[in-house]
């Protein structure tokens, strides 16, 4: 959801108004504005939670210079979807008493959410999630990328990650011989 707002209000008035609002406005690197529920932002992003608590949220759009509009749109979309689809953290932890592990498989809707993303959008989103301290979104996006890597050859992985092969032919051959069995799929 994109909004357009004029500037010029006094700092004090803004802060008072901000405290009453239940959404926060985020500004992407290319100047686009997005609105997200304050409650969801605070719950899902440690960075935004810190900014909200510290009062450093700008009513005219909190600058997130590191995040492009496409990635920020996905972040906001995720927050809004998450607010609707996920039981509260307390409910999850009480249902599985023995499962103290931090790892949780992505939910069905989260899978779909990342599956529809282009390769570039996914990589931008993972960076955005990392920057905003959104642990769950980071989990989901990293999981998706790791899934993309399974069963792929080193050549294919280099292509996905845009990596240059800095091994010599001999070095590569040595690794291949040492770990020949690992290069075969079951």
């Amino acid at each position: 959801m994109e909004v357009d707002k004029g500037k010029g209000e006094a700092e004090e008035t803004r802060k008072v108004a901000e405290a009453d609002r239940d959404t926060v406005t985020l500004k992407s690197s290319d100047g686009k504005l997005f609105e997200v529920s304050k409650e969801a932002a605070a719950r899902l992003s440690t960075v935004l939670a810190g900014m909200i608590a510290g009062g450093s949220i700008d009513d005219n759009g909190t600058d997130l210079k590191q995040i492009g509009s496409e990635a920020l749109e996905n972040v906001v979309d995720y927050c809004n979807k998450h607010a609707n689809s996920i039981p509260s953290a307390a409910l999850i932890s009480s249902s599985i008493s023995f499962n103290t592990a931090p790892f949780k498989e992505p939910e069905e809707w989260e899978r779909k959410f990342v599956d529809r993303l282009s390769h570039d959008a996914l990589f931008d989103l993972v960076e955005a999630a990392n920057f905003l301290g959104m642990e769950r979104l980071l989990d989901v996006t990293c999981h998706k990328i790791s899934e993309m890597m399974k069963g792929k050859s080193p050549d294919q992985i280099r292509e996905v990650f845009n990596i240059k092969n800095d091994y010599t032919k001999e070095e590569l051959e040595e690794i291949r011989q040492e770990l020949a069995w690992a290069f075969y799929d079951d």
Binding site: S146, F161, N162, I163, K164, L179
Partner: peptide
């Protein structure tokens, strides 16, 4: 572009999720 695009922090977050066999293959990436 000799280094990966993703920051090393995120790269690790992705790699820790892979099975050992895939990681052994990753040794041959760079």
């Amino acid at each position: 572009e000799p280094i990966p695009e993703l920051s090393s922090e995120i790269l690790m977050d992705i790699l820790v999720r892979l099975p050992v066999k895939s990681l052994l293959r990753c040794k041959a990436v760079c």
